[in-house]
Design a protein around this nucleic acid. Structure first.
Length: 202
DNA sequence: TGCCAGGCCCTCTTTAGGGCCTT
């Protein structure tokens, strides 16, 4: 069974195109329902962290100063992920930083991304909202540490992915929901989810 | 407690605008 790499970045802001950089990355490897490996590291990209971001993430300039270089961390993260397809919550955000930080070390971001936020909007329209923490509460998923730190959020996203896969099995009878089904579902409008499942099952 | 961007999606729409979500 091919593992899925669930990733979460902490960063200095919202846009690598505006000069924002990653400050921490965490990746959780999932096979079926099981977390089989974890990678987490702060990273020093040589940029200052604003007071707002420090309060938001708990990651300080002192912590970053003592961290390994962004180049070394991203090279190791790239090796850790390999060719595994990837998942993130609001994946458009993490995909941009994944691509931007890898480009700086000469690596290509070739992995496909599925998004637990888009999938949750399709599968759980009754949820109060689709923030990661809210969905974790909605599903009563276990807490795994301080919110807005990379490993805790990656673990939470992995647990949400497990919930999604479990619900696909129960609601639609899909035996082994894989990354290809997740990609298919997130590309469909909300009302077309059953049709997407039907196409997936052939 | 916020701004920056970008993709998705809803609706008072489609010749557009704005909310959500990520840090």
């Amino acid at each position: 069974m091919q593992p899925i790499a669930v990733i979460d970045f902490e960063t200095t802001g919202l846009s690598p195109a505006m000069g924002d950089r990653a400050t921490e990355v965490a990746i959780v490897l999932v096979e079926g329902d099981q977390v089989v490996d974890r990678f987490q590291s702060l990273m020093n990209a040589g940029v200052r962290i604003s007071a707002f971001i420090e309060a938001y993430t708990g990651i300080s300039n002192a912590m970053i100063a003592a961290a390994p270089s962004a180049q070394a961390v991203m090279a190791e993260a790239s090796r850790f992920v390999g060719d595994a397809p990837m998942v993130a919550h609001n994946a458009s955000f993490d995909r941009r930083f994944w691509a931007a930080e890898l480009q700086r070390v000469g690596h290509e971001a070739k992995q496909p991304f599925a998004c637990t936020m888009l999938l949750s909007r399709r599968l759980y329209p009754q949820a109060p909202n689709h923030k990661l923490g809210s969905l974790a509460s909605f599903h009563r998923l276990p807490s795994s540490g301080r919110a807005h730190r990379a490993l805790a959020d990656a673990e939470m996203a992995a647990a949400l992915l497990g919930q999604i896969q479990s619900d696909l099995r129960c609601r639609f009878g899909v035996a082994q929901p894989g990354h290809d089904l997740l990609m298919s579902l997130q590309a469909c409008a909300r009302h077309a989810v059953p049709a997407a499942i039907k196409r997936y099952l052939g």
